[in-house]
Design a binder for these strands. Structure first.
Lengths: 196, 196
DNA sequence: GTCTATAAGGTGATAGAC
DNA sequence: GTCTATCACCTTATAGAC
């Protein structure tokens, strides 16, 4: 990646996306202007268009990067071979990863309606792939007789909603540590699927 | 909102709020203009200000009415005396009520950041009252030895997130009826709290 | 109660100088 | 790569006629 010495192009792009992520999460995509983003980064508005063709692409890039990172991180997460170990790994992973990226999680749920139809389909496909990973763990457990539930598909959606909900109330430095929260949720998940 | 005999204020007001609810849910508060709302109702924009002092009050009214209706409906919901019966009633009630008012539920979660500080506190207090109603059921069950969970407060937030999540995927006429969905979720909730 | 007209200012995006 | 200036249009809210 040869760049002219002193060029900022390799750092300005990420800074723009970081500012947009923070502002979109705090105020909403429609409520944030390109001027606001530029000012946050210390640029004039015209300069932004060297990094994104338009505002909508900026939003899509943020969501796409987030979903791609989520899927990649779960692939690389260490996890055991049996369903119960895999479900515990998923529970702890989901809580930790989503808390670390609260702004991106918020945007990826709230701003779906601001995506163009093609962009929406792309993000939806990634979301479904993630849901399917959990559903597979649940189905395997049912097939092996170690889990019990009426509908693994619905259960996977219910579990993800429950785990993502941590983001709405957890604050670092509060009553519970991350590891305590992970433990409490794993207890609930385990009871829900009747593991052991 | 003073009314005069023969005026339409008693029907126009609700129509404006219904249009705003639908549009805010579909496109987001910031993305919807007062002109859009007026046009939906068949008015010019100036007429809207006979019914709301500004756009923000319109949003607050929608959220406040929704939360008030939610709390009132739960108060009036028939429910048994023992924790297990009350938890089943809560589970079925929450799913049904929220599915019936999907737009208001969506707005009441997504547009909290667009409320003024006082209005935000008012809505938050109602939300907390609803959460506390569930937490009380769980605590009672633990005290009576019929439920088992590490943290009733966290469990109440987890359950509400799980149940509200139905709104993101359920569609009438799909694979499952409302009553089947209620049954599947009650199974999961019961297992999670170890009822029976 | 609704209308039209208007105030005051913000919007995304582009052109062309440097 | 960034700037300034600009285009065409949209925004919330209000004033005053009817």
């Amino acid at each position: 990646m040869a760049r002219t010495a002193g060029s900022h192009s390799d750092i300005t792009g990420p800074r723009i996306r970081a500012a947009a992520l923070r502002l979109f999460a705090r105020e909403g995509y429609a409520a944030v202007s390109m001027r606001q983003i530029a000012s946050e980064v210390g640029l004039q508005v015209g300069a932004l268009y060297n990094y994104t063709p338009d505002k909508q692409s900026l939003l899509f890039t943020l969501m796409d990067e987030h979903m791609t990172a989520l899927l990649a991180a779960w692939q690389e997460e260490p996890k055991g071979a049996v369903p119960e170990e895999r479900l515990e790994a998923f529970t702890r992973f989901h809580i930790r990863f989503n808390l670390e990226r609260a702004d991106a999680v918020f945007i990826s749920y709230m701003e779906l309606r601001n995506l163009s139809p093609e962009n929406f389909l792309a993000v939806e496909a990634q979301r479904r792939a993630y849901e399917t990973a959990l559903e597979q763990i649940l189905s395997d457990g049912v097939a092996q007789g170690v889990f019990a539930m009426a509908d693994p598909k619905v259960a996977s959606l219910a579990l993800i909603a429950m785990l993502t909900g941590v983001n709405t109330w957890y604050r670092a430095g509060g009553r519970l540590s991350l590891s305590q929260v992970q433990g409490i949720y794993w207890d609930m998940v385990r009871q829900m699927v009747q593991a052991r």
